[in-house]
Design a binder for these strands. Structure first.
Lengths: 175, 175
DNA sequence: CAATAACGTTTCATGTCTAAAATATTCTGT
DNA sequence: ACAGAATATTTTAGACATGAAACGTTATTG
């Protein structure tokens, strides 16, 4: 998950004196393209946060981010949602949802009813227990995220959010 | 991989007139804490880029990001590295490295020699084939990343990198 | 109305990750 | 030198991801 790329060292061969400033802006220790450096940082931040949250979810609630995220999507949809819809929301393949849902249902956190109109589809809903449990987890989860990111100044946070939002829009257009 | 959290709607109860500006800066549609929104965006960007790169690596080179990243770490270390070192570099457990290395060695991309000094450790090195293959992949990989992120203006890129660098530092201190 | 296309879900094979237990090797203190 | 501590790796069990194939249900249409 690092995607590091080695830059070739510039072999000093020319007889001309080298330019005073390198061609690429060097705010950092490496000559790599800005884009590459951004991607590496982005990935590093995301995996660090994800691992921290996952570890705490496991320790405090004996659950995982995948389960939490599925509950979160159902929590904001009292009318329920189908497997495919959830799969789209979580950006995860249908096959992955099947296993997740089976376990969550076995644990009594969600209900799965056949849709009366279209018997191909299931309607997933949070159970009472699921809603209660999700509320507890969501509160802690929020505290954790705030602790992790909250050390940045409000200005930095606002800037960062804007840039990420812009980046996400560009990425979505790309696909 | 979404980690969405629903925010409670603010119930208007006070008799005093509300402040002209909301307490939290609202550049966005939701009342959630900035930290939560940043985390969601960060995760969305990271997974989108990761999936795009993974898909292209699979299509063009029949490989994966995990394999590519391991090769990348060895490529910048001609002296080689031990399993544990690689595991630290990739921020992945030792067990994960074992399987990866076995396959890469079977494919002839890396060598694994027992260290003469300490027979507990292996020294991993890129093979000739591995180095050649990695070079081809690294060039394409860089093009892809530049295409994905390059739509941001240079200023935005530089800002984003700075903020991510700062965030990463804070996260590392946290742990 | 039947053949067929489209859809929703499950199953399967495969890949990657983790955490913890097992093994093997080296180091350390008396 | 030797018992234990520390270190490096492998193994195992379990979670989650994908993509492709299979299957039942619904829609379409000649």
């Amino acid at each position: 998950m690092d995607a590091t790329v080695k830059r070739k060292a510039r072999s000093p061969k020319s007889t001309r004196p080298p330019p005073l400033q390198p061609v690429e802006p060097v705010h950092d220790s490496d000559g790599a393209h800005l884009e590459l450096r951004i991607w590496l940082r982005l990935l590093a931040c995301a995996t660090r946060i994800e691992k921290a949250l996952n570890a705490r979810l496991r320790k405090e609630f004996n659950t995982t981010l995948a389960r939490f995220d599925l509950l979160a999507q159902l929590a904001r949809r009292p009318e329920g949602a189908s497997m495919s819809v959830v799969s789209d929301l979580l950006m995860v393949s249908n096959g992955a949802i099947t296993a997740l849902v089976q376990k969550l249902e076995a644990d009594g956190l969600i209900h799965r009813e056949v849709d009366t109109a279209d018997r191909r589809t299931f309607r997933l809903r949070l159970s009472q227990d699921g809603a209660r449990e999700f509320d507890r987890m969501a509160r802690r989860h929020e505290e954790w995220v705030i602790a992790l990111i909250g050390e940045l100044s409000p200005v930095a946070q606002s800037d960062l959010l804007q840039h990420l939002t812009l980046l996400k829009r560009r990425l979505d257009k790309h696909a």
